[in-house]
Design a protein around this nucleic acid. Structure first.
Length: 256
DNA sequence: ATGCCGTGGAAACCACGA
């Protein structure tokens, strides 16, 4: 079974690319972020025609997350990250599919840092970490995947020294990610490719993709039951080179 | 060092992204 994550950067603007990617790689479950569409503008019909069921949490202009499945019903568990009723951003959705718990997240960017947006990011991260602790102990396989907006280590940035003061790489952000990992989660891509340069995002400008000036910010975190089933993992980096592509590439894992 | 590009929505520019 293949589970994928893809920050589409606009689900309607990206629809041809999204459908082509679904058709070519046929993920069984796909988590999407940055829909940038309100609930009623989600392209459900096109996605159903591609063979998928979907649940989503849209929002006008920004954010937005979805879970797609072609392997049975999606039982939604929650569509809001607990801990702050005043947080109205659509950044989290969670479902059970075929006995697997899937959390799809779009963690805040946080720039400029320091400042209120960075505070929001760290707050959101703390709330997510609290929620993740309860999920880790569940008696079923759990995967938390999406755009974490964190490069965990120097190996995950083309030029670490340029990013030390950026919200995606500041010490507080990396500490938050490693605090989350310390609950026991496995970073699937890094586990299977410990020394490899792996990127999931390349800026649109300055030919970042052509220069391979990338970042690894889209991640798969697995609890022990899921980790036991992990076979392989990778990035569909060629998709980033397609016409009208997102600035992210899809990331995937293969499980037993 | 920098939204230089791209998206969406409102309005012919702005917010936001990483």
């Amino acid at each position: 079974m293949r589970i994928a994550t893809y920050n589409v950067n606009g689900v309607n603007g990206r629809l041809p690319v999204l459908l082509r990617w679904l058709e070519e790689t046929k993920p069984d479950i796909a988590c999407l972020q940055e829909l940038k569409a309100p609930h009623e503008k989600f392209p459900l019909e096109a996605i159903q025609n591609a063979g998928y069921e979907a649940i989503w949490h849209g929002q006008k202009s920004w954010n937005g997350v979805a879970i797609l499945s072609k392997v049975g019903p999606i039982t939604e568990k929650r569509r809001v990250l607990p801990g702050d009723p005043e947080d109205l951003h659509s950044r989290y959705i969670e479902a059970e599919i075929n006995g697997i718990l899937v959390g799809c997240l779009y963690l805040p960017n946080g720039n400029p840092a320091p400042g209120p947006k960075f505070d929001y990011k760290l707050n959101w991260f703390q709330r997510f970490t609290t929620h993740a602790a309860s999920l880790f102990k569940m008696d079923i396989p759990v995967v938390l995947t999406g755009d974490y907006n964190v490069m965990p280590t120097d190996l995950d940035v083309y030029k670490p020294e340029r990013w030390v003061n950026d919200a995606l790489f500041r010490p507080e952000t990396r500490a938050a990610f490693h605090g989350l990992l310390s609950q026991g989660w496995t970073d699937a891509l890094r586990k299977l490719h410990p020394d490899e340069k792996i990127y999931t995002f390349w800026d649109y400008f300055r030919d970042a993709y052509g220069r391979d000036a990338g970042l690894r910010i889209d991640h798969f975190l697995l609890n022990d039951q899921m980790d036991k089933r992990l076979i392989s993992a990778g990035v569909d980096r060629n998709v980033r080179g397609w016409e009208k592509s997102s600035d992210h590439a899809p990331v995937w894992i293969e499980i037993k």
